[in-house]
């Protein structure tokens, strides 16, 4: 039975639109992204403008969400913080997925001994706890956002590589790959042009879901002092700073905590929606 054709992208979009939770997720993600991009325009103050006289001030006209212990504007720090938090989340995933795709496609396409060696190395990597990895990397390279991103990316690589490899194994034996070999296409061309585009769809979902996890991981690292360094604003770091004054000024923990929660939830809703939209067989 034929139905009207919308094209792959159109079909996915059509189904995604019907999923309310996913649309809410998408809207929040877009808002957070816009906030992060336009942080300098949106934030009333800079993230490090101090006003020691007004420390721990409550909400007022000047400071809508009050100030912290140095009198810095909480709202501005949250807005600026969205930048660093998102950079952490997206950066880790981008880097981890890039590593994962490269390693996974080499292992999956060539198979045999190369496959075994690569996947065993991946196994070893996934045995090291992420925090330990971050501590080691921070010890070697010094604590910073970039190094935290590298550490988290390395620890997400094995799972991504494994996912890609499994997908590639199913695409590799399709006849169109054989046809490409028959017209004398070289291996890199076959992988990039024929195999990856057909193996990558499930990773899109995993990647979206991973962004949420990476934001949390980034916040965790900043919380224990291995990620964003003062005076940079980052939700995890803000949580950490606020934790000492939790009794008196709960809002200092609450604001960044809620931001993390909502953002992560939004990414997860979107990921769930994407999965259902990309693979309609899973539903019904």
């Amino acid at each position: 039975m034929k139905t009207k054709k919308r094209g792959r992208f159109g079909e996915t979009w059509y189904r995604l639109k019907k999923n309310k939770a996913a649309v809410i997720g998408l809207v929040i993600v877009v808002i957070v992204l816009l906030v992060a991009i336009f942080a300098p325009l949106l934030a009333p103050y800079s993230y490090d403008t101090q006003d020691l006289v007004n420390a721990y001030a409550g909400p007022s006209k000047e400071h809508l969400l009050g100030t912290d212990k140095f009198g810095r504007d909480n709202l501005s720090r949250l807005i600026w913080g969205s930048r660093n938090s998102l950079i952490m989340g997206l950066g880790c995933v981008a880097l981890g997925t890039l590593f994962g795709i490269t390693i996974g496609s080499i292992a999956g396409y060539f198979g045999g001994r190369i496959d075994i060696i690569i996947m065993r190395i991946m196994d070893i990597f996934s045995c090291v706890p992420m925090l330990l990895m971050c501590v080691v990397i921070a010890a070697i390279l010094g604590p910073s956002i970039q190094n935290a991103i590298i550490a988290i990316a390395i620890s997400t690589t094995p799972s991504c590589a494994r996912l890609i490899r499994a997908n590639i194994l199913t695409v590799r034996d399709k006849e169109f790959v054989e046809a490409a070999k028959a017209i004398d296409a070289k291996s890199p061309h076959i992988i990039i042009r024929h195999i990856l585009p057909n193996a990558i769809a499930p990773t899109i979902v995993a990647t979206t879901m991973n962004i949420g996890n990476s934001i949390i991981a980034g916040a965790t690292l900043s919380f224990i002092g291995l990620g964003a360094q003062a005076p940079l604003a980052e939700w995890g770091a803000m949580l950490s700073e606020g934790r000492n004054y939790m009794r008196q000024h709960m809002e200092l923990v609450l604001y960044p905590g809620i931001c993390i929660m909502i953002t992560v939830l939004a990414f997860n809703l979107l990921g769930d929606g994407l999965r259902d939209a990309l693979d309609p067989r899973l539903k019904n």
Partner: peptide, 17 residues
């Protein structure tokens, strides 16, 4: 590979979607 070619059975899996 210029001189020898192949046509496959399954017209669904032999073309890159």
């Amino acid at each position: 590979r210029q001189d020898m070619q192949i046509i496959f059975q399954d017209p669904y899996s032999s073309l890159n979607p």
